[in-house]
Design a protein around this nucleic acid. Structure first.
Lengths: 339, 339
DNA sequence: CTGAAAGCGCTTACAG
DNA sequence: CTGAAAGCGCTTACAG
């Protein structure tokens, strides 16, 4: 525990120079002009700061100032490529504003998410960027009611009036399914998470809408799988609709993880894409590129999402009271999996 | 900035109950027995804590106690799947010990790494887990000389006596190349990063050793590519050895990112694997599974690496002075890319 | 131009 | 069993 040399404090500098800590603080914060610190003293302080390799203790500063220049970020799982990139963009963007970010993974589990919020609150983060999990209404509501700066990303919670930046999931789904229809597929199935989260609902709604608009309402086939039992559920569902019975000629996977899982099944069962079944996925992924028939997919503007989220939360921290709802548009990346 | 209700402090509780802050602190820290706080007061304090939804301000606590229960983690890039998983395992492991982790990405850039160390130092992290970049000797040395708890992961720096947990890269390389030789390949090339980092040197050394041991010393062919210009360099190198001239019948990729990049080239140029060129990679990756001929690769024990790293740094924080050098063993995952 | 002092929210030796 | 007080390392209004 004992460091060879405990880090120097502002007091050490003041003593060395022979002035009060106030002057050191002023110089350190570039206020030597306003506070009219003499040129010699300023100079001398600068020297000693360098000599002692002084760097300010942000903890003390935070306690005094009431803010920490820290953002709390809660994602589903930092090891998931979508959230990994999102986190990386947020990290860079936040740094540009002088903020450090503390990341936590919720595993889409509401309890974990709530615990993370508590931890981050105790650590006095100045604001939150949250990918909310299913059923998280309560603790996010508490945050919002406390007027803590919050921005939800990837999804929002309909009951809560707060900032969010999301993809236009409905439209993205419409586009994906529309593309399949345009390519001539009629028996198009969708695999989605069993979730009451809005982004999932919207993706399903977009699918249904596109099907109905094309007069294919009777062909609507949505199978839900559980996040916590993805392998098992995917296996059961795909076996049912692709192997035991031939229920679809195209499949739309609602997320990255669902798609990857589906591709394993399809590869293992030697189902030919797109001849036996066309495919379309959500979010880019290197794995999609190497699949026998590279996957057509909905690309999310992750960088922009990160940028907007950080901007909004920083604005809120700086006192903005307006509520921002940002809806971004996707890009459809066309490749071979849809023929 | 102004919160509707500023969070209650220990003082608010004390006032409400009508006791001093000392008693509240004792109860909050479960010391009511040692400090002999009366049962009634303890009870009353507990009630008010609940009523006011009080949670301690860790910033104040940290300032007073001199530690923050925070770990600083520096990886090359959190968006890279290898570092993403590593970070996730470290997060979980650290949480189990009561630590929060702050993650930063260095992009293998020494300057960025140094800046991150400064930021984390200012934030008074209790210890560091670092994936060192090329040329980072100086600032890591400073940390070590200051007796700051540090553990290096994935690689270490030969000149610095400190803790590390790494893969036995030499042995892993020997095994990978040995496998190719066993499968009958003779003109085996290797693509590695241009780097003086020990993990890369060891991987190259293992390759050379395996080649020489098999009497294939004259066939040794190592091409180095730059991290910052991966695309360009890979393209040039692969064009040279696979397209313009047929210099190898097997290729060993020294990292995940190099392998992925190589696979794009091979896919684009329609080179048949393993008939025209066998392949072997480092680190698992979903993309490897979907490549036309699923890649044989060296699997690193990421979870164990994370576990050891956190354990070591926490031990150091708790006062341990012994230096730990952990070398983990790989697993060779055999699939179709080597015939 | 500079210093003494209060205070952020805690913990903890000390006194009673 | 309990309270008054010092102090962690800063910032900042106030006084001179």
């Amino acid at each position: 525990m004992k460091k060879k040399n405990k880090r120097p404090s502002i007091k050490d500098i003041a003593d060395r120079v022979g002035v009060s800590t106030a002057l050191v603080s002023y110089v350190l914060n570039g206020q030597e002009k306003e506070k009219r610190v003499s040129a010699e003293v300023t100079q001398r302080i600068r020297e000693v700061v360098k000599e002692l390799k002084y760097t300010p203790n942000q903890i003390a500063r935070s306690l005094r100032k009431g803010f920490t220049k820290t953002l709390g970020l809660i994602v589903a799982d930092i090891a998931n490529p979508f959230f990994g990139s999102l986190a990386r963009f947020i990290e860079d963007e936040a740094n540009a504003y002088g903020y450090t970010v503390i990341i936590g993974s919720s595993d889409e589990d509401c309890e974990k998410s709530s615990l993370l919020v508590d931890t981050l609150l105790n650590r006095q983060v100045d604001g939150f960027i949250i990918v909310p999990s299913d059923g998280c209404t309560n603790h996010i509501n508490d945050l919002v009611n406390d007027e803590m700066p919050v921005v939800l990303v990837d999804r929002y919670i309909p009951g809560i009036t707060t900032n969010y930046v999301i993809l236009d999931n409905f439209n993205a789904s419409m586009d994906a399914v529309g593309h399949l229809i345009f390519k001539g597929y009629r028996r198009i199935g969708m695999i989605a998470y069993q979730s009451s989260l809005i982004h999932m609902k919207e993706r399903v709604r977009g699918y249904c809408q596109a099907m109905e608009a094309a007069g294919l309402g009777k062909n609507i086939l949505v199978r839900e799988v559980r996040h916590a039992h993805l392998d098992r559920d995917m296996n059961r569902v795909l076996k049912e609709i692709l192997v035991d019975e031939n229920k679809v000629d195209a499949l739309y996977f609602a997320t990255n993880a669902i798609a990857i899982n589906g591709l394993y099944f399809i590869q293992k069962n030697k189902i030919k894409v797109p001849t036996e079944c066309a495919l379309i996925g959500f979010d880019g992924n290197e794995a999609f590129d190497f699949f026998a028939s590279p996957l057509t997919f909905i690309k999310q503007p992750i960088h922009e999402m990160a940028k907007e989220a950080v901007k909004i939360v920083v604005d809120q921290i700086n006192g903005s009271r307006k509520v921002a709802h940002i809806m971004l548009q996707h890009e459809l990346i066309r490749r071979q999996s849809c023929g």
